[in-house]
């Protein structure tokens, strides 16, 4: 009867259920795989503190190396702004908090519209800068494959569609809401099987990197 609303109901009903199940199964699969596979025991005596350095590296890698910001400002600043903006828009917007409360029972105060919308806009601008930094630089362009472009597109779509739906910029607002939820469903489905997995696996990779260097007594 109302295609926009029907699509919206499908997107937040069966489509979300399936997407979330795939997301949960995929993330668990890859985490369990990582843990069970483990790493070969290093029999050499440690020269430093592998565990301590491994744990520390999980956090210290969030701070850029001196000089690198100047070397690739677009990548660094764009990366920061995109990640912070994405999570601010995701975690501070009331409808999203309502969803998390329903799912996990956790709740926190929402931010006002100006903050959420500025964060969204900044994240989108940052994503565009990141896209251009990939396309303009010949080395990065050569390293970028279809998956990278897909992942970039899928992480920006929820921001753009959400902004359009909330501000009724164009199109039928209900249809845009449906498209927004569908874009999130798509993001959830591809998440575990693409580089988006870094948002979980970074803990492991940073720990391993830190621990390997720590064992050698080197900086990480």
């Amino acid at each position: 009867m109302n295609p926009a609303f029907t699509l919206f109901m499908w997107a937040r009903g069966p489509a979300f259920d399936v997407a979330l199940a795939i997301f949960a199964a995929g993330i668990t699969l890859r985490l369990v795989e990582m843990v069970v596979l483990g790493r070969k025991t290093d029999l050499a005596p440690a020269k430093g503190h592998p565990i301590r350095q491994g744990l520390a590296t999980i956090f210290t890698r969030s701070i850029p190396r001196p000089g690198l910001v100047r070397f690739a400002p677009g990548t660094y600043l764009g990366g920061y702004v995109f990640h912070l903006g994405f999570f601010a828009a995701f975690l501070l917007f009331a409808p999203h908090i309502a969803l998390i409360r329903d799912a996990l029972g956790l709740s926190w105060p929402a931010a006002n519209r100006a903050i959420v919308e500025s964060a969204t806009a900044l994240a989108v601008v940052a994503a565009i800068i990141l896209f251009f930094s990939r396309v303009m630089d010949p080395v990065r362009r050569a390293l970028t494959g279809f998956e990278d472009y897909l992942v970039l597109l899928l992480s920006v779509l929820p921001l753009v569609t959400g902004y359009v739906a909330a501000n009724k910029l164009f199109g039928n607002p209900e249809m845009m809401l449906a498209v927004h939820v569908l874009s999130v469903d798509a993001l959830l489905i591809v998440f575990p099987f693409t580089k988006l997995m870094h948002s979980v696996s970074f803990v492991f990779s940073r720990y391993y990197n830190g621990a390997i260097q720590g064992r050698k007594g080197a900086e990480s």
Partner: peptide, 13 residues
């Protein structure tokens, strides 16, 4: 709330 999924998504997850 409109933003909350309608199905039994917790069990599926």
């Amino acid at each position: 709330p409109l933003s909350v999924p309608t199905g039994d998504y917790r069990a599926l997850a």
